[in-house]
Design a protein around this nucleic acid. Structure first.
Length: 951
RNA sequence: GCAGAAGUGGUGGAAUUGGUAGACACGCUGGACUUAAAAUCCAGUGAACAGUAAUGUUCGUACGGGUUCAAGUCCCGUCUUCUGUACCA
């Protein structure tokens, strides 16, 4: 009998599980969130950085950004926008390949399984994604277009005069008409000059070789970051602290023939574009630093007794008379040439020693000063003085020219080097003491002991020196960038194949109409025995130019069959333009239709982590600018506004083991014993930090027979520490479990409630009941307490209820527009508490309230909307309109503080103009007293707070 | 070293553009309901002092100064933490 009663009373309880399943099914069946490429409504494009589907599945940290963007997308729909909110998968990548190497399973299979799992988890959270536009970078129908973009880059060059990329045919026409002397293009540094006649006389192969030096993607022998453990090269942004970002393996420098992207052509535009986009300042700063623009000059120093010149880059041409020696990087081309017989031995051993040092050692040890004199001298361009040429590993081969003119009085590194080797430190600064350290401030300097620039400041001196150098043909003003061309080849299997075959060793593009060039099947995913990439294992991997298809390797003797490229593209290839592909993702004849690109323009709001600052987000801007130049896109930036959501961290739990014993001791009983902390799975620890000992014993067999020293009350306490959420730290919390226990709406609101979106914060379930209780209270508000049934009446609402509603509308709208989702959760809580206290049950208030809450807690909102008698989704209903009159009508006394401690109350209504309020304030007896006859300059009225007097 | 962000109760965090600091939530304390527990509901909760009480007074936003009728908020200096970056000539 009792059970039956419970069942009845449960009927109207907030049954989140069935409600959520019901509406998720409804949205999928009705394709509620499918975006149309045509609409009379304004468009809005909200995008999340698409995930890499890892085998570990989603943890509660992943959805944070998705929830925020989903709230915004849903809000924008309520506001009448045609919203594009797609999702997809960045499904090429190293983990799937490494798993394949270990298990022999095809990466496609594991990737598909992982995607299925991700999808299942994402669906449970109730996102309003338009899945009809889903993309997967590893899908041939998608990477066909990644290959297509590659071909476009190959078929383009960068015209410095027009400052844009142009078709390579234009360049060929220019060469045929006038040779390359007048052509202003971004190209390799070692291009040879030729006339139109010479161009015509070159063989096809010679012409192709030259063109390769101009193409925006090109094949070159480059010094790359080779990671032997991973068997592949890495881009600069994939290396962290001298080791690989993934795995933390050593990285060495190695020369290899590699595809590169001429991103340096876009360095200046990538900098300038930052001013036009609404991105977080720290992110812009890191792109600015990464591009590393510095203004200065190149100076050519003649080498004494040689016909060669050493070229250096300096940001301080004004200090040229302070040069007392030069330093070359140990890898510099001239080292062997200029070293004298007497110094040969010392130089050779130094070069060898520094080549052996890994990048990491070199970085770890910045303090030690080392170097060797080459025995050679350079001539000062103005004084003709002989300057000793040294080599030293503080000079980097990869930056500038790999050589510096050392000015010890003006640069601390040069200063330290000079001190260490007892080299002269001439002072060229008026009235500056350089006996202790170099003087690097260029703003407040007057140059001395410097012939024709004596008495000048930095700017003038620099200009004069550059002019003088140009007159002597020994230098010129130059802007140098730290940004390097991006290496685009990876020796991996699980990536996009290049649409490239080789004819006489020269790369040829496969005609775009024959794409995609799909990945071949291989037996193993490791590099071949003779060091070729995994694709070298494929039997069927050559291109037949007659049949235009992939054929068997053995046919290669035939002159119409050519070997295909064995490298694959890096991870960022597929993610650089994916945001544009969503606009028309099923299009099989073009990347996306002109109409779709024109309609959606660019991403209005992009959410993702800040770790992509110098990778994905930079490459994406680069490719977008390129596509814009070539007329494929109508915008030259991919993303208007970007928000970096903070990471959700895990609260790891540690049990303590007494060193050398299989004894585990509770936190409070350690008492100075030597202990070792061991990660325990957080699922075995409760909110009081008490460990479930039995579960722990079963979890780790080695602790099955361990001794447990508990607290005096018999509990076993663990210690907690905040760390990144990761499987290996056993601190992962699965969103499925939260959905199961509290519901997706609770998860969504709680993740927002945790704190500001951009901030990193530890996950803790401690406060989740507060949010869950709120949803229960919300549910109750629409149900009568006594009969436990849906209960909303048509009578008009009280003034107080309307005031609560409109206060809430205003606040929530402001919060969403400012991305302060955490505070609007509080706003809802206040509203529901107030309406409950007011016993509000009128449709006039409860219907708009459901709409307000729908972006945050869509499932319960849909259910309430349905109970209110509507048979369509709440998702497109107009957002309630704020009406100030409801606040005005119930205006009361508001406190005013003035003149220190004095406080009094003043009755005001909101629709008064500033001057009316001024009058009211002046008329108020006490105010006049306090103002002492002065007129207030400004009286500010803000809803809720009301008054602000500036006297 | 450089650049950026931030320091507010026991905890997460509010505080609009300088105007009642600590919203909201967790936790805690007490109470109601219950045989009991859970759930739910109600009340209290920055600190100190005074008062039977309502209440009042003082202090209080990392630290030290400053501007202002008024400072968590603005300015100067110090300390701490976090994030990024690092021999970039």
């Amino acid at each position: 009998m009792k059970e039956a009663l419970n069942f009845v009373s449960n009927m109207s309880k907030y049954h989140f599980n069935s409600i959520e399943a019901k509406w998720q099914k409804y949205w999928a069946a009705h394709q509620t969130f499918q975006a149309k490429n045509h609409s009379s409504n304004p468009k809005y494009y909200v995008l999340d950085m698409f995930p890499y589907p890892s085998g570990a599945g989603l943890h509660v940290g992943h959805p944070l950004g998705y929830i925020a963007s989903d709230i915004y997308a849903r809000y924008k729909r309520h506001k009448g926008f045609n919203v594009l909110h797609p999702q997809g998968y960045d499904s090429f990548g190293l983990p799937a390949e490494q798993y394949a190497i270990q298990t022999g399973q095809h990466p496609r299979k594991t990737t598909e399984e992982n995607i299925a799992r991700y999808r299942e988890q994402l669906d449970k959270i109730g996102f309003s994604f338009d899945w009809s536009r889903e993309v997967r970078t590893s899908d041939p129908a998608y990477y066909k277009w990644t290959q297509w973009i590659f071909i476009q880059l190959f078929e383009s060059w960068y015209d410095k005069t027009l400052d844009k990329a142009r078709p390579i045919d234009d360049l060929i026409a220019l060469f045929a008409a006038e040779g390359n002397r007048e052509v202003q293009a971004v190209c390799d540094e070692d291009v040879v000059q030729f006339s139109a006649e010479q161009w015509q006389s070159f063989s096809f192969e010679e012409q192709q070789k030259i063109l390769l030096q101009y193409r925006l993607t090109y094949l070159a022998e480059t010094e790359v970051n080779w990671c032997p453990q991973l068997g592949t090269v890495l881009a600069n942004d994939e290396i962290v602290n001298g080791v690989s970002e993934r795995g933390g393996y050593a990285v060495v420098r190695k020369k290899m023939k590699q595809w590169s992207m001429r991103i340096t052509a876009y360095a200046q535009r990538l900098l300038d574009g930052l001013d036009t986009i609404d991105w977080p300042q720290p992110l812009k700063d890191s792109q600015t630093n990464w591009i590393g623009r510095s203004k200065g000059a190149t100076v050519r120093f003649k080498i004494n007794n040689f016909d060669n010149y050493v070229e250096v880059f300096t940001t301080r041409p004004d200090t040229i008379f302070g040069v007392s020696f030069m330093t070359l990087a140990p890898e510099h081309d001239f080292v062997n040439l200029i070293t004298t017989e007497a110094q040969k031995k010392a130089v050779q051993s130094y070069v060898e020693a520094s080549a052996k040092r890994s990048e990491r050692e070199r970085m770890a040890d910045v303090k030690t000063i080392s170097g060797v004199f080459t025995g050679a001298f350079a001539e000062h361009p103005f004084t003709g003085a002989l300057i000793p040429i040294w080599i030293g590993d503080y000079v980097l081969a990869g930056y500038g020219t790999g050589a510096v003119m050392a000015v010890p009085c003006g640069d601390q590194r040069d200063y330290d080097f000079a001190k260490h080797f007892n080299l002269p430190i001439p002072n060229i600064f008026e009235g500056i003491d350089i006996s202790e350290e170099a003087y690097a401030d260029k703003e407040n300097t007057i140059i001395a002991n410097s012939e024709f620039i004596n008495g000048l400041g930095y700017a003038e001196a620099t200009q004069k020196v550059i002019e003088a150098l140009e007159a002597k043909n020994q230098g010129s003003g130059k802007i140098n960038y730290r940004l390097r061309d991006a290496v685009f080849s990876r020796q991996r299997y699980w990536g996009e194949p290049f649409p490239v075959y080789y004819k006489s060793g020269l790369p040829q593009m496969i005609d775009a109409k024959h794409l995609p060039l799909t990945l071949p099947e291989v037996e193993k995913y490791l590099p071949t025995e003779d060091g070729e990439p995994p694709l070298g294992r494929a039997d069927v991997w050559a291109w037949d130019t007659n049949k235009n298809e992939v054929v068997h390797n053995k046919l290669i003797d035939n002159e119409i069959v050519f070997p295909l490229e064995l490298n694959t593209m890096p991870g960022w290839a597929g993610s650089s333009c994916y945001m544009f592909r969503y606009m028309d993702s099923k299009n099989n004849t073009e990347f996306a239709s002109k109409e779709a690109l024109q309609y959606w323009q660019k991403v209005d709001l992009y959410l993702g982590g800040s770790e992509h600052a110098t990778g994905h987000l930079l490459y994406s801007r680069f490719w977008t600018k390129f596509m814009f130049d070539r007329g494929f896109f109508s915008v030259d930036e991919p993303v208007k506004k970007l928000i970096n959501q903070g990471m959700i961290l895990g609260e790891s739990a540690f049990v303590h083991r007494i060193e050398g014993e299989n004894t585990l001791v509770s936190k409070g009983q350690i008492e100075g014993r030597p202990v070792q902390p061991i990660h325990a799975d957080v699922s075995m620890v409760n909110l009081q930090n008490e460990l479930d000992i039995e579960a722990f014993k079963n979890w780790r067999p080695e602790f099955k027979d361990a001794t447990f020293i508990t607290e005096t009350d018999g509990t076993f306490k663990v210690s907690r520490e905040v760390e990144k959420m990761s499987k290996s730290k056993y601190n992962v919390v699965n969103p499925d479990d939260i959905c199961e226990q509290y519901g997706a709406d609770t998860l969504r609101m709680y993740e927002m409630f945790l704190g500001p979106l951009e901030q990193a914060k530890p996950w803790s379930t401690a406060g989740i009941t507060g949010v869950h209780n709120f949803l229960k209270k919300l549910w109750k508000l629409y149900h009568s307490g006594s009969e436990d049934a849906f209960f909303v009446v048509e009578e008009s609402a009280s003034k107080d209820a309307l005031k609560t509603l409109h206060k809430t509308i205003k606040k929530v709208e402001e919060d969403i527009e400012n991305f302060s989702f955490n505070t609007s959760v509080s706003t809802f809580m206040i509203a529901v508490n107030e309406l409950t206290a007011q016993k509000c049950n009128q449709r006039e208030v409860l219907e708009p309230l459901a709409i307000l809450i729908a972006p945050y807690a869509p499932h319960i909102a849909e259910e309430l909307w349905n109970l209110l008698g509507h048979d369509t989704s709440i998702s497109t209903v107009a957002f309630p309109k704020f009406d100030a009159k409801h606040l005005v009508e119930s205006s009361k006394e508001y406190p005013v503080s003035f003149n220190g401690k004095m406080r009094f109350k003043l009755e005001l209504s909101l629709d008064l103009s500033v001057s009316e309020i001024e009058t009211a304030v002046m008329a108020h007896e006490k105010t006049q007293e306090q103002l002492q006859g002065r007129t207030p300059k400004k009286v500010i009225v803000v809803p809720g707070k009301i008054i602000n007097i500036v006297g």
